[in-house]
Design a protein around this nucleic acid. Structure first.
Lengths: 202, 202
DNA sequence: TCGATACGCAACGGTCGCGTTTCATAATAT
DNA sequence: ATATTATGAAACGCGACCGTTGCGTATCGA
């Protein structure tokens, strides 16, 4: 018995799959989605062409488009900002500023659109996106709010879910229905200040 | 000179276009969009088939799909609720309840999705939708808020645009990321009450 | 070296929707 | 009646992708 055979994932014979190709495929898919295509307009041929890869190489790894998109979304590491500022206000402003700055980049914008608009048609994709990109952020915001409730910066009876919806929803609404350039620079601060007015004790 | 010739739109000779066909086409288009298709997946052939109409009849009236969709969206009469209640709170609750109830119907939901997600790819469509479905509602809400500011129910220095974004954005966020059934029945009231906490004077 | 597997590439037959045309028929003005 | 335009149906050639296959080459383990 050789060392190799003892390894957990008994390596099959023959040429191993190219990791580079795999990354190129996922990157190409995200790229095309980032240009505004919906999931159904995303064609395997286009992905293969852009990735510089044969269609075979794609079909060998994923049996359908949805699985590919799910993996692609999963590869998006959401850059959660630290949020360990001095005050609840600072943390929330920092968070919403990240959201705002992302909404300006076309790629982020389109991928967000996909996740939001195709939840009926492609529930698995939307669910995965929610898991990857939304939940961790919501958890971070929730931590900030709960910290504030604990130390008295916020009302003790604050409805945390509602507060999170107010913060994220307001920013989303503004970024949706505005052209990029008429988003005021201090939008994050203004949203937080307006929201906090109702979140504070008293 | 006959009466007919004196009419504003000098009726051309020959068989007139069928109004019924026109309505059937638009209805079919909305129907398919309401099932979750994006604009680009919406095929003329499918519209014709569902409307019980020849493709000729469609191509004779619209030169491209976008124009058809624009007209279809324009045919959506937004049922703006009256909003003449006793208080700002009552009006806002009534408004958000309409929004909430619409978000449950698949058709409304999908058409909303289209307008929101395809603004990059089909700006004319999104713009038209905004004109038809968003602006009048926002105007109604703005009127309620301004009335409240005038009679002292709301702070005199309230940022009206921000307040509208908070109300609509929060409801949208909740309806987006929730399955229909875990939307609490009193969601509208809870959003309004939470928001008003910061909108009131003092 | 040899067997096995993956690679990029090109071609296959098949489906779908495109936008156009033709056809027989229907509806309207003169 | 006759001229004119619209209608639904069917068929056209065209191009985009589909998912599969065969090809020669590259990369691995034994």
């Amino acid at each position: 018995m050789t060392m190799q055979q003892m390894e957990g994932a008994a390596r099959p014979a023959g040429r191993p799959r190219s990791e580079k190709a795999e990354k190129a495929i996922i990157e190409a898919a995200l790229d095309i989605l980032g240009e505004g295509s919906g999931v159904s307009e995303l064609s395997i041929e286009a992905i293969a062409a852009r990735a510089g890869v044969g269609k075979t190489t794609i079909y060998r790894r994923w049996t359908n488009k949805e699985d590919l998109v799910v993996d692609a979304l999963a590869s998006l590491k959401p850059p959660i900002p630290p949020l360990k500022g001095a005050s609840v206000r600072d943390d929330l402003v920092a968070y919403l500023q990240v959201v705002r700055s992302e909404s300006i980049h076309v790629r982020t914008r389109c991928i967000m659109n996909i996740a939001m608009s195709q939840s009926d048609r492609h529930p698995r994709v939307a669910e995965r996106f929610h898991e990857i990109a939304i939940k961790p952020r919501q958890a971070a915001v929730r931590a900030v709010l709960e910290r504030g409730m604990a130390n008295g910066e916020l009302r003790a009876d604050l409805d945390v879910e509602m507060a999170m919806a107010i913060l994220s929803g307001t920013m989303m609404w503004r970024t949706k229905w505005s052209s990029d350039d008429d988003l005021p620079a201090d939008l994050a601060e203004r949203i937080v200040d307006e929201a906090l007015r109702g979140f504070r004790p008293g």
